[in-house]
Each structure stands twice: as structure tokens, then as C-alpha cells.
Design a protein around this nucleic acid. Structure first.
Lengths: 207, 207
DNA sequence: CAATACCAAGCAAGCGCTTGGTTTGTAAAC
DNA sequence: GTTTACAAACCAAGCGCTTGCTTGGTATTG
């Protein structure tokens, strides 16, 4: 399944909003603004202006501003979990699966959904405790994918550190790329960056 | 030189504020609050209440709220650069120097200055562009320490990835520990965590 | 002809910061 | 050893503005 097919099926199941619809467009703009200025500094007037409506009209689609933030996060996790699962199924060996996961997460962070992923990392505290708990549940599915693959490599003796520590280190390392990685200006492609991450972990790129 | 001696000499040079003084106490509380609730959600009334004065009285010590954020960041970098330099001087081989750097940065993030370090990472965008540029200059000194050591290891063929990429990955990975590492509850000590990071990079701990 | 999507206007609360005046600490002058 | 001088630290009050959100009404759509 292509990335687009995955997106389409999620839309069909009503798990993520169609980016062509009103709600989807708002979420996309919200992700952009939240990343650019931060959630607190983004006003409901900013959000409304970005999609060309009055600020009060926002509250027909969402009950509160926080609900917008939560929706951005929830839909992003749903999409990326699906993308990860698809990326992994295509790989055979544990090493290839790890590479697929790294590559997929780098793509989430630095590609189309990058703005939303950055929001997920940097605006976490702006969610109420209740919403945080809800979103955390979704993340667990996602994290289990990683731990399975890292656990297998550890058993093969090809990983020198503990899987759960490695995963957390990778979460930080890969998220952080959003602050410095600029594929458009500079020689490092996304595949090149993936190679570097794998090399750092002791898996040299095939020659 | 012990950590405390380093702190004392920086205070003597007026590069960081004495935590016993009014200014120092305010900065300490500010770091705590900024980390806990974020810069935007922390009001000048919160800050004032934390040190037991009226909100207006804050503006005798700092001209704006942003100046407080900047001061937290600047003083934190100054202190940690000094601590890093000291930690590295004690090490001999490149591998030991790398371990010293990792250990020192983990300590910055998860120890006494942890709250301020978290602010440095997560509240960066709340600084004006001018202040960002100023703080960045200070960070460059700090980063040069890392690149020297990683460069040496790369030349020895003991590092499979590019130094500047590894440094950025480590920045993310180590910063991220602030979100999950809790030494008080759980078997992993700071030295144990350092071992795990080194192992991940292909430097197994001595038996 | 209902439901959905939106507008125009504005309210109450909270924000950073200012103002004018009082207390407190310090040290020279007598 | 008391008085005088002065700055630094602080308080009490509140100004002007922005914030998230509400309200009552009007188009638009199937």
C-alpha cells in the first residue's frame, strides 16, 4: 500500500480528517501555526484568519482551543502508526525492520506530517492531563512496534544497550532532527540521514 | 576543581547570580516554573509569588519577562560550559573524554541545573530573535568541545557516523532523558545511563 | 425547511507592565 | 552614637490591551 492509499483508508474510516475538508484544512493550518509560534502564542484569531473565517466560527468545529491541539496530535499518531506498520511489513530481517522504522519516523518528522509531529513533541505540556492520558494510550501501540524489533536485535547480540533505553534515545535523537535537518539546503538526503543513524548504532550501510 | 568551586568562581566573576541572593533565587524559581508550566503559561504574578514579592516589584530586577527567560538560559550555559571543560580535562583518552562529556551533560540535564536545561531546550522559541542570536554564540563554545572529541574518534575509525550528525543526535537523545529518566525510582543510575549511551555508540562498558 | 456553516459584536477575565509612594539597608557627617 | 542622606527594594493600585469564548442572527446547502 502506498502512503496515499493508507491516508485514504484512514479518512474513509473517519480516523483522520480529509485535508480538503474544512476540518482537515484547519488542523493543517493549526499544526503549522503551533509549530511556528507555539500553542500559547497562537490565538484563536490567528487560527481563524489562517483558514479565512471569523474567530467565533471556530467554535462550531471545536468546543475549545485545546480540542484543536488534541485533534492535531491524535490524528498524527493514527496516521503515523499506520505508516510505520506498513513500512515494517515490507522488511524481512530485524535490521531491515529497524531501518524501516528509523526511516519512517524521520519521514514523519521531516516530511508532510512534520509540523504536526513537532507539535506532538514540543506542545505536549499544553495538553490537559486528561487529554495527555488519552493520547498516551495511542502512543503505546506505536512504541510496541519499536520495542519488538529492538528486542529481537538485542537477543541476536547485535545491540549492546537495553532496547527500552535505545528507543528513548532514538525518540529524542530523531525528534531533534526537526530543529536542524534541512534536506533542501545541504547534501544529506533522508536516506543518507537514515544511514548515519544506523551507522551510529553499529549497523554500517551496505557498500 | 569541584563543581561547587566552579560555581563559586563564576559567581565571583559575576557570570552567574548567587542562588542565595534575590536575583539568583528568582532565576531558580523561574526555571522551575518555566519548566513546569512553560514560559507562556507562567505569569509575572506566578514568578513574584514564588519569591514572595508583588508582581510589579519584579520589574526592578528585570526590565521585561523575557529578560528573565534569557537570564536563566545564559547563566545555565555559562555554568555548564565551565563544568564540561573541567570534566574533560580530567579525562585522558578520547573515549574517556567522550564518556566525561556524556556523563556531564546527563548530569546537567537531570541534576541541579536540570530545570534550567529543560527550559533551554523547550522554551527556545519564546526568546526574541535577538536574544536567540546572543545565546547561540555562547552555545558555540560548548559545542566545539564535543566536535573536537568526536572528530578525534572518527579519525581513529572508532566512530562509524559523521561527528556533526552524532553530536546532533546526542543533543536530542540526552535532552530527551529529561522527559523519562527518573533516577530516584528505578534501578538505572546516572553512571548506568552513561554506560548505556556509550554502549549504544559502540563503546561497551569496561567489565 | 431543517441542519450546517458562518458572521458581527462584544463580554469577562487575565495579561505584562507602569506609576507614585513607602520601607529598608548602608555609610558618611556631625 | 546619633543624625542625615540616598539609593535600592519593595508595595498597592490599576491601566490598556489581548485572550478564549458566547451570543443572536444570517446565509448556504441538500
Amino acid at each position: 500500500m502506498s502512503q496515499n492509499q493508507i491516508l485514504q483508508s484512514l479518512i474513509a474510516e473517519n480516523l483522520v480528517s480529509d485535508p480538503k475538508g474544512a476540518r482537515g484544512r484547519l488542523l493543517k493550518e493549526a499544526a503549522r501555526l503551533f509549530r511556528e509560534k507555539g500553542y500559547e502564542r497562537t490565538t484563536v484569531r490567528d487560527l481563524a484568519a489562517a483558514v479565512g473565517i471569523q474567530s467565533g466560527s471556530l467554535f462550531h468545529h471545536f468546543r475549545t482551543k485545546e480540542e484543536i491541539l488534541k485533534a492535531v496530535m491524535v490524528e498524527t499518531i493514527r496516521l503515523n502508526t499506520a505508516l510505520m506498520q506498513a513500512a515494517m511489513e515490507a522488511a524481512e530481517t530485524s535490521k531491515d525492520k529497524l531501518r524501516a522504522l528509523v526511516r519512517a519516523e524521520l519521514e514523519s518528522i521531516n516530511g508532510q506530517t512534520g509540523e504536526a509531529m513537532a507539535v506532538l513533541v514540543f506542545e505536549w505540556r499544553s495538553l490537559s492531563a486528561d487529554s495527555q492520558a488519552e493520547v498516551l494510550e495511542l502512543r503505546d501501540i506505536y512504541e510496541a512496534l519499536w520495542l519488538d524489533v529492538l528486542g529481537a536485535l538485542r537477543e541476536q547480540g547485535r545491540l549492546l544497550a537495553e532496547p527500552f533505553v535505545v528507543r528513548r534515545m532514538l525518540t529524542g535523537a530523531l525528534s531533534w532532527t526537526v530543529t536542524w535537518y534541512r534536506p533542501e539546503r545541504g547534501g544529506l538526503t533522508l536516506d543518507g540521514l537514515t544511514d548515519q543513524v544506523m551507522a551510529m548504532l553499529g549497523f554500517p550501510a551496505a557498500p
